[in-house]
């Protein structure tokens, strides 16, 4: 069973602060982490490998510092890691990113199972992984709970709003993991030490000769960020201190009734 996992390095969004004067995002000093859902994707890959044998390859597109995330994946148990990196890839939106990752997967493949996260917590789009499947022309099932392999088929439990669907699909398949899929393992000490020595090669544009360069980077991205802003939270909150809870409740519901909200 050959498995590839797409992992993204993201800023820890709980640590992001807004510069109160300039009203911009302060990115400096914000730690970079492996996208939480990608950890679930990796865990699922490792479990599949344990059950059915095979190899787990992790890939990440990003700058050199994303190698830290790839090393973390190796320390958890992945067998191989590649960094997809090139100036020409910068500024890619989900269309271009998924196209590049699909080309990389084609080059490294063939794979039976491709795993990714439900969404990345920085961009939060949840589009990249299913789009990779589309570029590759293979089946995909998003938001999975579990995956079982049966010959050249798989049975997947998939979360939708109304419940859990049980879906049968042919391999190869791309699946996306959520927090409910599993509980990611911790790296072992040995894994950590080994991962420091592991080689992680760069895959650049030059390594991908059959890439259509009109589809990559900023120029290949159909969407453009026109502007950004930080949400204005003007505080016009009417504050009550509790002297007598019942009295406060009375005043509060009085206000709601006045506003025809009760």
């Amino acid at each position: 069973m050959n498995i590839v996992v797409c992992v993204k390095q993201v800023p820890d969004t709980t640590e992001i602060k807004i510069d109160p004067v300039k009203n911009t995002l302060i990115r400096q000093g914000v730690p970079s982490i492996m996208n939480p859902f990608d950890k679930n994707a990796l865990e699922e890959a490792l479990q599949l490998k344990e059950e059915y044998g095979g190899t787990v390859t992790v890939i990440s597109m990003g700058p050199q510092q994303a190698k830290a995330t790839l090393r973390q994946a190796l320390s958890m148990g992945a067998d191989k890691a590649h960094l997809v990196t090139d100036r020409a890839f910068g500024g890619s939106d989900t269309y271009a990113t998924s196209y590049i990752l699909a080309k990389v997967i084609e080059k490294l493949g063939p794979f039976d199972v491709i795993l990714g996260g439900k969404q990345a917590i920085d961009g939060d789009t949840g589009q990249t992984a299913p789009s990779i499947a589309e570029h590759l022309g293979i089946a995909r099932l998003t938001h999975i709970r579990s995956i079982k392999i049966d010959g050249n088929k798989c049975i997947v439990e998939r979360e939708i709003e109304e419940g859990i669907e049980i879906v049968e699909a042919k391999l190869p398949i791309l699946c996306t993991a959520t927090k409910e899929t599993n509980k990611p393992r911790y790296a072992t000490i040995k894994g950590k030490i080994d991962s420091l020595k592991a080689e992680i090669d760069d895959i650049t544009l030059a390594d991908l000769p059959n890439m259509d360069t009109t589809k990559i980077g900023l120029k290949g991205s159909p969407t453009r960020v026109k502007s950004t802003f930080t949400p204005k939270r003007q505080s016009c909150c009417e504050i009550f201190e509790i002297v007598d809870p019942r009295e406060t409740a009375k005043v509060l519901f009085g206000k709601l009734a006045e506003a025809k909200l009760l």
Binding site: I16, D122, D124, R224, F229, P231
Partner: peptide, 15 residues
Amino acid sequence: PAFGGNLYARILCSE
């Protein structure tokens, strides 16, 4: 929203 709601972006698909 992006970055967990810390930032909002206006996005166009103009071409």
